[in-house]
Amino acid sequence: MDSSLFRWPSPGPQTAVAVTVTATAVATATLLLLARSALRPRWGRALPSPLKTTIPRLPSDEVERLVYQPDAFPGARDVDTPYGSIRVYEFGPEDGEKVLLVHGISTPCITLALIAHGLVKRGCRVMLFDLFGRGFSDGVGDLPHDERLYTTQILLVLASSPLAWTGNDAFRLIGYSLGGGIAVHFAAAFPHLVSSLVLLAPAGLINAADFGAVSLFIFKSGFVPERILAYLTRIRLQQPIAASRKAKEISPSAAAADIAATEATSDGETQKTDGSSIPFEQHVLMYVRWMALHHTGFIPAFMSSIRWAPLTDQHESWKLLARRKPGSTMVLLAQNDEIIDVKGYEREGLPLVGGKENVVWKVLPGTHDFVMTHSERILKEMDELWN
């Protein structure tokens, strides 16, 4: 018998090259996967807030120097939930009209302090809370920070009150920036609860190009390992905000950081809730920098919000606002907003919500932080809406 019939043919030069290339590709892909796994931080389910990590170790005089202190508002409570603890404040006359306020992407509820106190002076019962991963609320590390998570958080906050915040026309809802995008989804899901909806420079229809195409790709594609992106984001949010407006041209994380920065910047001054006057940019930048260093849930929450929160392309949810009772919705934009294209919002958003016959739509002086620099003007508009 011819033994050559049982021989495996010897590989030729082309076959050897193909095998080598394939083996190299497999080895490289394996190495990349291992490196990616090693560079992916293992976020916990609940990421503890500074109330559990940093504040207990600080001397009382250092706590008193914090920009945002645990007793910033009356009626503070920490609500334990399956997602972690939520810091909630509720104060004002118990029989007053109830108003819930939802803040933005990078700063806690103290951003809405002037409006909240102004409403209480008008006899309202107000409730504020820190979104997951901000202020004194724990972070959520294993779920996307999208409208579903934040809608659930609002329901948990409402359920924590000793007073009834449910039923038909139970409360008025105010949402600022990201909080506006969240408020749109909540009001669309539970229209019977919300007697009046006020959107202050709301997210939802922001032009994605304002984030920067490279920035959005890097945040959403997963191309950059999570640990590296988290490090870059933390550094970015600790740098002077004034510098960040130029840095977006050279830093892939800068444009996204600018979205956060505009909530916390102003060229003028404002009043702290304790009455002292300091430059507003310094006032809030101090806290953003402190939170980036001391809140384990802040960077993951910020990054996840850029990816999943209702910041852009929310046209379908805005359409649902057209079903609301005429005159029960108000949209207030800032004339010189650094994020929101006021004309673009009016061109795209106003028809979605039913036009000016259905909603109150106004443009006020100020920039994106007008909730602090022009709070009295905003309160005046609410007075007119609510008679």
Rank of each mutant, 00 (worst) to 15 (best):
R307C: 00
R148S: 02
V342W: 07
L114V: 04
L332Q: 05
P240L: 06
T20K: 08
R40N: 14
A254Y: 05
I299D: 06
V99C: 14
A264D: 02
V360M: 04
L58H: 02
T233K: 06
E376Y: 03
V198I: 15
D267G: 10
T151M: 02
G141M: 06
P48Y: 02
E147L: 03
Y68A: 12
Q153I: 01
M382C: 13
L5W: 15
L197H: 01
V21R: 08
A213M: 11
Q14N: 13
T54C: 00
V331N: 06
F91K: 01
D2I: 07
H295K: 04
G12T: 14
F171V: 02
T111S: 07
Q282W: 12
F217W: 12
R40I: 09
K121N: 14
P59H: 08
H315Y: 11
D138R: 05
A255E: 04
G366P: 04
L31S: 15
A209R: 11
E338L: 13
F6V: 09
E346N: 10
S3I: 14
S160K: 10
Q335E: 11
M372H: 12
L158Q: 00
Y89N: 06
P365W: 00
E316M: 06
P48F: 01
H117D: 05
H315S: 12
I278K: 13
F132K: 04
P279C: 11
K362C: 08
L311V: 05
D61H: 13
T152P: 06
V67N: 08
R148W: 03
S277W: 10
H283S: 00
D142E: 07
N207H: 05
L178W: 03
K98Q: 14
D313I: 03
P74A: 15
Q69F: 06
N207P: 00
Q314K: 09
A201N: 08
E357Q: 12
A23L: 15
E269T: 14
A16H: 15
Q153N: 03
H315Q: 13
D71H: 13
L285G: 05
H103R: 00
V353L: 01
T262E: 11
A170E: 02
P48T: 00
L193F: 08
R122I: 06
L320A: 03
D95Y: 05
A260Y: 10
V288L: 08
R87K: 09
S251R: 12
T270L: 12
L128H: 05
N207K: 06
S3D: 14
G92M: 03
E62D: 13
T24A: 15
G354S: 07
I206D: 04
